[in-house]
Simulated scan of single mutants.
Amino acid sequence: MSASAQLTLVIGGAGTTGRRVVDRLTALGRPVRVGSRSGHPPFVWEDPATWKPALVGIDRVYIVHPDPFHPDYAEQIGALARAAADCGTRRLVLLSGRGHSVSQDSEENIKVPGVEWTVVRAGWFNQNFSEAFFLDAIRAGELALPAGDWTEGFVDADDIADVAVAALTEDRHHGKTYELSGPRLMSFADIAAELSAATGRQITYTALVPESTSGNAPDFGEVFASDPTAPHRQLAHGVQEALGRDPKDFSQYAKQTAATGIWNA
């Protein structure tokens, strides 16, 4: 099958990494089907009857689940993998998480007979501060979280997308798990300092006790508590292993994003 005929289903194709994967595949001349509620045909995680119609004619799939804390997360990933195999899909690339046992279960569940697989395992994204739940806090000038001594090797969504596209389009990534991080571990105080420097505004980090976030959505007290490995997280080298280059540093992301003016809105 020629590359131009290898149709890729990008589940979560409107999301942070998914839309970047769609853009990159399209730029390479690769045909793409976006897997979403508004897709044609639609793909809905909660409705398995939509899965096979979306998988018809699909050669490879990029899998992003919207809720890794969903009680049926790993089971849904496995059921999707089996449905893809039944439809003749040849390759699966899963976006997984670092430090969660349920993520490890989902990784095992994509390893179905006759299908090539790659796991892209990532922690927290740089884009959490510009495209997700921390955006309003940065605009307001205060990042208040019950993070304690929590640190993370924040990874850029562009790097995740580049690794995913390599796994989708190249033949050397089958059977590999790429664990990704940025080039340094950072605390939220470090993040506030970097964003202050990039924006020219004072952005502070306030350490909260977990109870002070009770009732908020998401409940970050529970999020941090559910990932006990994070305070002792090590840097990972999946970007280098998959792409042969270093990952983007947070300071570069911060400067590029500040130039768009999004944090000044």
Rank of each mutant, 00 (worst) to 15 (best):
E241F: 05
F69E: 14
V21D: 01
A79D: 15
I191F: 00
T16I: 14
S38D: 11
I58P: 00
T204Q: 11
R19S: 14
P210F: 15
L143N: 00
A132F: 10
L185E: 06
C87P: 05
E46G: 09
S214C: 11
G114R: 12
A14S: 14
E142A: 09
G78H: 06
R82P: 02
T118E: 01
A74E: 14
Q240D: 15
T16D: 07
F134G: 01
Q234H: 12
R19N: 09
S187V: 05
A225G: 06
E241K: 07
R20L: 15
H65D: 01
A258P: 02
N128P: 01
S251I: 07
R24G: 03
L168G: 00
P41A: 06
T8F: 05
D67Q: 11
F43G: 00
G15L: 05
H65T: 05
A242K: 02
A225T: 09
T260Y: 10
M186C: 06
G175L: 03
S130T: 06
G123H: 08
I11G: 00
D156W: 14
G97H: 12
H70S: 15
E152H: 15
A122H: 02
Q76N: 12
L143M: 04
A161D: 02
F125H: 06
S2C: 04
A27N: 02
E108R: 15
L9T: 04
V44Q: 08
A207W: 05
E131S: 09
H237A: 13
A265H: 09
A167T: 01
I110F: 07
D47F: 08
D219G: 11
A192H: 05
I77A: 09
P231A: 09
A140K: 12
R201T: 03
R121F: 06
V223G: 03
N126Y: 15
R82G: 11
P183Y: 11
D23L: 06
Q202F: 13
V120T: 07
C87N: 10
P113R: 13
V56G: 10
Q104C: 10
E211M: 09
D86V: 08
A197D: 10
W263H: 00
G123I: 04
A207T: 09
D156T: 08
M1I: 09
L92Y: 08
W45D: 03
G99W: 10
P41C: 05
Q6H: 10
A3E: 11
F154Y: 13
S96F: 12
T89V: 15
L243T: 09
N216V: 10
T169P: 00
T16Y: 04
